[in-house]
C-alpha cells in the first residue's frame, strides 16, 4: 500500500503539473481538494481519466469523487480494491 501511495503522489504531481510540489509535501490523510493541495474541478476530471487510463477504473458517477479523492489514503484504498490492470 505504501508503494501505491507513493506512485499515486508521483502521478498526481505529473498529471496536474504541480511544479512546486514533491511527494513528501502530500500528507497521506490531507484533503486533496479545497484545502491541502487546493485542487479544483478540472483536476478532478484529470484524476478520473488517470484512474481509467492507468488502473482500468471507470468512475461513472462524479459524486463518488468526493469519497475517492478525499485523500491519498482514500484514493490508494479505492485503487487497490478496484483496479483491473
Amino acid at each position: 500500500m505504501e508503494l501505491l501511495k507513493e506512485e499515486l503522489k508521483n502521478k498526481i504531481i505529473e498529471v496536474l503539473n504541480l511544479e512546486e510540489v514533491v511527494p513528501g509535501d502530500i500528507a497521506d490523510d490531507a484533503p486533496l481538494f479545497g484545502e491541502g493541495l487546493g485542487l479544483d474541478s478540472i483536476d478532478a476530471l484529470e484524476l478520473i481519466v488517470l484512474l481509467d487510463k492507468d488502473y482500468g477504473i471507470k468512475v461513472t458517477d462524479p459524486k463518488d469523487g468526493k469519497v475517492i479523492f478525499k485523500s491519498i489514503n482514500a484514493l490508494a484504498s479505492f485503487v487497490a480494491e478496484n483496479k483491473t490492470k
Partner: peptide
C-alpha cells in the same frame, strides 16, 4: 487511440 482525453 482517441480515448482518455483530458480536459486541460
Amino acid at each position: 487511440d482517441e480515448q482518455f482525453l483530458t480536459p486541460t
